[in-house]
Design a binder for these strands. Structure first.
Lengths: 200, 200
DNA sequence: TGTACATCAGTGAACGCGCGTTCACTGATGTAC
DNA sequence: TGTACATCAGTGAACGCGCGTTCACTGATGTAC
């Protein structure tokens, strides 16, 4: 830090990513704007061009970074478990944690047409999450999804359940779940996610 | 029909809804525009104001109509089944049918911030779909979700699974499912949706 | 059947706005010597 | 340590665009008598 009112920002790239997430959370993907992000960062609206090619580039970088934190949220939950089934379910709860904590970012990552999936960083970050899912299936089922039909079914089933729970909770839809108190809700989520896995 | 080049359109309202869906499918919610819809309908861009208050009004009407067709898709599948479990699963398959056939509309209905949920038509149409879900749970479980904790769990679990499958299929994500051929995929979906229900 | 008139459903010009992008610029920083 | 210079990371004015909305208008339709 050199001074408060310095010309060079220091780490504008990181600041822009931070503000982009705030913009996204407030306005939604539908109304997201580059100028809005620049304004939040207290910088002229032409400044972002020095760090990101264009709006799609900024959103893509944000999504890539999001996938990293998404993975971390799952691993954080998993760290407390040892058995394959417990770890699998924990990763699902981490998945939901992230979605509920960052709904707009989550939707950007999974349902936006504004991402550039040819970007290596985004592709790699998304791939890492997918790889964790595959590893969890294999640990539980003893066979890799790429080789075993049943394992593939487990993968889709677990993913769909957890993804669906996330989406519904984000949209505030299943009031049924919301009316449960905190602890009971955690238990309910465990039970539901468990249903998506093969019986013990 | 009076003539080809008539001044009064005849049924512009219906035409606008039709073209709005096309616009939505092509551009996505993020880039949807009223002017684009008017252009598709071959009408001046000020014309829609006579039928819908504004863009939100048009989207809301479209979503309400969408929920009607969404319900119909589920009922169409259910009609071929008699047992509660079979009917429940069938409704899920109808849910997925609709999502896959109308992905942009589906996302408008479930994940857009541009809808006016205070609109009675939209609210009622959405409520009807929710009611069908509740009825299916009750038929299977013998208890209403509003009164029984387990039934509530079934509702959330079935909804999340089917909704998650829809979302993932729309986003082209689980290539695992896609690599199955048509018939096997139908079977796989049945199996997966069944997992979300209480064991037989 | 004919006429007068009210209502309805369009038109097209005009508005102001926020957007992304471009561009010449300039102040700050880092490096070579 | 001091100076010259290249590079970097910003600024702010300008552009053209498509958007939603408003408004005075007019042609078509429906109704009363």
């Amino acid at each position: 830090m050199v001074g408060d009112a310095r010309y060079h920002h220091g780490d504008l790239r990181a600041a822009l990513l931070r503000e982009a997430e705030a913009e996204l959370a407030e306005k939604g993907v539908e109304a997201f704007s580059l100028r809005g992000v620049a304004k939040r960062a207290g910088v002229s609206h032409a400044a972002p061009a020095h760090h990101f090619r264009d709006t799609a580039g900024l959103l893509t970088a944000l999504a890539a970074e999001g996938f990293g934190r998404f993975l971390a949220a799952q691993e954080a939950r998993m760290a407390r478990e040892t058995a394959p089934r417990g770890r699998f379910i924990a990763s699902g709860l981490g998945y939901i944690d992230f979605a509920v904590a960052h709904p707009a970012l989550f939707r950007l990552m999974f349902a936006s047409a504004r991402l550039d999936w040819t970007d290596p960083a985004l592709c790699a970050a998304g791939g890492r999450v997918f790889a964790l899912l595959g590893a969890n299936v294999e640990a539980l089922r003893g066979a890799a999804p790429s080789e075993d039909e049943m394992a593939r079914l487990d993968l889709v089933s677990a993913w769909a359940m957890v993804h669906g729970l996330s989406e519904l909770m984000i949209s505030g839809r299943p009031t049924a779940l919301m009316t449960l108190n905190g602890l009971a809700r955690e238990e309910a989520l465990r039970e539901i996610v468990g249903r998506a896995l093969p019986p013990q």
